[in-house]
Amino acid sequence: MKPVLDWIFERTGIDRVWEALMERHIPEAEGSVSWLYTLGSAAMFVFTVQAVTGALLAMNYVPSPDHAYDSVKFIGDKVILGGFIRGLHHWGASFMVVIVVLHFMRTYFMGAYKYPREGTWMVGIALLGVVIGFGFTGYLLPWDQKAYWATMVGTNIAGQTPFVGPIISKILKGGVDMGAATLTRFYAIHVLILPAIIGILIGAHLFLVVWHGISEPPQRAKPSDGQEKP
């Protein structure tokens, strides 16, 4: 085993990447405060679960008004552990928002957004938007009453925007009325566009986290990590 690993390491440097990622120094934090630092990793974990269960659901889902509802029902009734996998994706979606908001609050209240981590923060804000986008587009997919009317409300809210509202609403719905084109549009956004965007954003976010190192718990009258803006 060792010679094989050494061969790979020598040619790829993966061991050093691993060291840089997993064996980097992190600030010391006491007791319950240290748990707050796990929220980003928790978000990462739920995101992974969402990606895997989502891919599995897509194997049996049809984004068309005459099949969407039946195909979701099929997953629950006929696919082994289909209800469980769907349940994971369903609850994972809510957990994702909750955890990301908690993570957002921890980085806010601990001042982790301050110099030099403004970039991490801004990418984070974009991630928050994408997570909410996942929730909004995913909610329509089961095509049941709740899904339909929730999306009706959501797109109508967008339609209230002064001047551009009607245009935004039509673009969201893929037409004047909600229907087949809305479903395919939401589906494409949910499984193609947002995953591509979140992949890039998570990559940038984690790169910046490693690049700057994790910030210390804040201390009174001390700039973050003792670093003043130059």
């Binding site: 679960v49 895997v52 269960t53 599995l56 194997m59 006929k78 696919v79 082994i80 552990l81 289909g82 469980f84 996998i85 994971l88």
Partner: peptide
Amino acid sequence: VLSASGLAYFVSPAFR
């Protein structure tokens, strides 16, 4: 647990 469930889901057509 997660990967076993995912795998069962994936191969379920074999048992349908």
